[in-house]
Amino acid sequence: MEIRVGQVAVHAVEHGAGRPVLVLHGAGVDHREAEACFEPALDGAAGLRRIYPDLPGMGRTPAPASLRSADDLVDTLLRFADEVTDGTAYLLVGHSAGAYFAQAMAARRPERVAGLALVCPLLPGVREVPEHRVVVGAGDIGDDAFRGYFVIQTPEMLERYRRYVAPAAALVDEAALERIGARGALTPEPPPAPAYPGPTVVVAGRLDSTVGHAAAVDLVHHYPHASLAVVDDAGHALPHEQPELLRALLAEWLTRVERSL
């Protein structure tokens, strides 16, 4: 589907029916990675309408010149959420940069967000980022991007990378992302924006050589109803590498969301 939000035509795919779940992918990819990782984790839960947009400048969503900052991008996502949810409180799931934007959305419209899930979140306080280390495989398959992203380097993970990650590279509007990234700090920066009070889960990879896990651990003190998992043998590609654990963590989060409604 395509939803026009001001000058931006947001492309998205959706599955299921019920309470909306907006799933935001990271930088340099498109909805296909989020869909491949989170559909197995969410499609078993009844009554969820899972919505996977391409973020502006990626996939099939353009980023017109009017989008000049991360704040502009968040405003676009909030208006997109208003359009596709028709006023219904929705769940927010974000991976990497998608989690960065999801935090800002929840901070600005907490009454509209029924639950918040942050997976390998990009955060302004990133620190103590470990060196990349392969834990499964010889490190001799795939291209440099694959070898720098996955810590579990098996033929199965390489196939997932080739199907769901690599194809998006050709669709990235690098100039647009550079323009938006030049003003990439959100206002207010999350955190210390006002704490989102709803059910929250934070999942980080102990071996994440992109954003680390130390800053993610801090979030458990910021969100009053947050569960935290730091997963060993997982890097920034945690949703690919630890699907069963991710499914269990999201299932527990969904239980808390339903209890809070």
Score class of each variant (00 low, 15 high):
D30Q: 10
D30K: 01
R32Y: 08
R32P: 03
R32S: 04
E33H: 12
E33L: 10
E33F: 04
A34N: 01
E35H: 09
A36S: 14
E39M: 09
P40Y: 08
L42T: 14
G44T: 12
A45Y: 13
G47F: 04
G47M: 03
L48S: 11
L48A: 08
L48F: 10
R50D: 15
I51V: 15
I51G: 14
I51M: 09
Y52N: 06
P53M: 08
D54P: 00
D54V: 04
D54K: 01
P56Y: 04
P56N: 04
G57L: 11
G57K: 05
G57Q: 02
G57C: 06
M58C: 02
G59L: 05
R60F: 15
T61P: 05
T61E: 13
P62H: 10
S66P: 00
S66G: 13
L67N: 08
L67V: 05
S69W: 02
S69G: 00
D71G: 03
D71I: 05
D71L: 04
D71T: 00
D72T: 07
D72H: 11
V74H: 00
V74Y: 02
V74L: 01
D75E: 13
T76E: 05
T76R: 01
L77Y: 00
L77P: 01
L78D: 02
F80P: 01
F80I: 04
F80H: 03
F80T: 01
D82S: 07
D82H: 06
E83N: 05
V84T: 12
T85A: 06
D86Y: 08
D86M: 12
D86H: 14
D86I: 14
T88W: 09
T88P: 10
T88L: 09
T88H: 14
Y90H: 15
L91F: 12
L92N: 07
L92Q: 15
L92V: 13
L92A: 11
V93P: 14
G94R: 12
G98Y: 05
A102K: 09
A102Q: 02
A102S: 05
A102G: 08
Q103R: 15
A104Y: 08
A104E: 10
A106P: 03
A106C: 07
A106H: 02
R108Q: 05
R108I: 03
